[in-house]
Amino acid sequence: MTASTDNWEEVQATSREALGPAIVEYIDECHQDPAPAGKLIAVLHRVQAEYGYLGAAHLDAVAQLLRVPAAKVAGVASFYHFFRLEPRGKHVINVCMGTACYVKGADQIAARLISELGITFGETSSDGMFSLEAARCLGTCGLAPIVMVDDDVHAQVTPDQVPIILDKYLRQATAET
């Protein structure tokens, strides 16, 4: 890789540190591809998988190492819903708002979650335990309505089950400490 700025060594070192060796290695692999910039979304996926969100330092580092303008990286990261620019809580609650779930009362479940947690969609509870998000469609319409907590799918949820589900994760957290 050739120097693009006069403090390139320094920029490169900071960027490598921000992303960690696994992602840096992946970006190096991307440069073997005829169109490395085409791998931008794939790189962002890896960063999010590793850190849970895409912070400003991550985006800048990706721009430097993949050699894509920072404006474009920020543009792409903010365009796609899947990418998060803020850190999230310990557990991410995804309420499916797909048609089947909506028809079967997902809005009531969402309302219950909002009142139980005291946060709305896109927010994280003050104790850092839960982030609440609305999912487009998780593709498990036959079991609607669906609430996904991290990778656990809770099927055919009723509003009354909401506190029970939350409690399970809270108790888990207490047990761990």
């Binding site: 169109a35 085409g38 979304i41 796609y80």
Partner: peptide
């Protein structure tokens, strides 16, 4: 190639842009 949660990427020209690493 992975999408990233943009419904419009189901449209073919948007999908192509997404594979190219652009906004869809």
């Amino acid at each position: 190639r992975l999408g990233a949660g943009a419904f419009v990427c189901g449209e073919e020209t948007s999908l192509i842009h997404s594979i190219e690493g652009e906004r869809g």
